[in-house]
């Protein structure tokens, strides 16, 4: 199918296993992709950014389609939430910020929705209750092609398309994840906590600090 016929999506892509698989599946469905990587440094290391860039390059080569890539600083957002808000909700604040920023980039790019590698119940932030709280962050459609797959099935696809070897290279996991993250957050609690933060200013600062990489510069 010709790329871009169906839709244009903003893919939230990390250096992990799932998001490159989700991205690949949607490219195969004819979707044009713009990648957004949220840079969690200093709570991760530079290896995660390197892995992400390698994954994007690999997907470009594999599918023969250019993938414009935004890298957005996310560390300052983590600091704001860690200093001011309840710890157990941190992963929800983090993901909601990602979605807000992805939506803004979607508006810049004229994209139709947001694509993620989330699958139900895989980690604390991906329970049905938490996904509902995350969904309410934006008005755009959120596409989750892996939602019903388990990790074994996702890894199988990752191996088949050659992203697994890149995704499993060394890279530091996020060090600001709480010990006991909420698995059933209430929307009201999250909204209440977010009122302690100037979310609009954080989004603007994130967008002001982002870098864009085109096919040629990757």
């Amino acid at each position: 199918m010709e790329v871009g016929i169906l839709a244009k999506l903003i893919s939230l892509i990390s250096g992990g296993i799932d998001s490159p698989v989700a991205t690949y599946l949607m490219i195969q469905r004819g979707v044009e992709i713009v990648a957004v990587h949220m840079d969690n440094r200093p709570f991760t290391d530079e290896k995660n950014l390197d892995k992400t860039m390698s994954l994007v390059r690999h997907l470009q080569d594999l599918t023969g389609t250019p993938i414009k890539t935004y890298v957005v600083p996310h560390g300052p957002n983590h600091i704001a939430f860690a200093r001011n808000c309840q710890r157990h909700l941190h992963c929800l604040f983090c993901r909601r910020m990602m979605y807000r920023i992805a939506e803004r980039i979607a508006q810049i790019e004229g994209a139709d929705g947001i694509l993620t590698g989330e699958s139900l119940g895989q980690v604390a932030s991906q329970t049905l209750q938490n996904l509902m709280v995350i969904n309410r962050t934006v008005k755009m459609p959120i596409i989750r092609p892996l939602i019903g797959l388990d990790k074994v099935e996702i890894i199988e696809i990752a191996r088949k398309i050659g992203t697994y070897e890149i995704s499993t290279l060394p890279g530091l996991c996020c060090t600001i994840v709480p010990k006991k993250p909420s698995t059933a957050a209430k929307s009201g609690d999250v909204l209440c906590e977010e009122q302690k933060i100037d979310i609009g200013t954080l989004v603007e600062k994130s967008l002001a600090g982002m870098h864009v990489f085109s096919f040629e510069t990757l």
């Binding site: 200093p42 709570f43 290391d45 560390g75 983590h78 600091i79 860690a82 200093r83 710890r87 060090t175 600001i176």
Partner: peptide, 18 residues
């Protein structure tokens, strides 16, 4: 000092340390 996030302090010396 790289950052003090309140629940985590990150410093840099011979390597970066959380």
């Amino acid at each position: 000092i790289v950052t003090n996030a309140g629940i985590l302090l990150i410093v840099n010396d011979r390597c970066e340390v959380s």
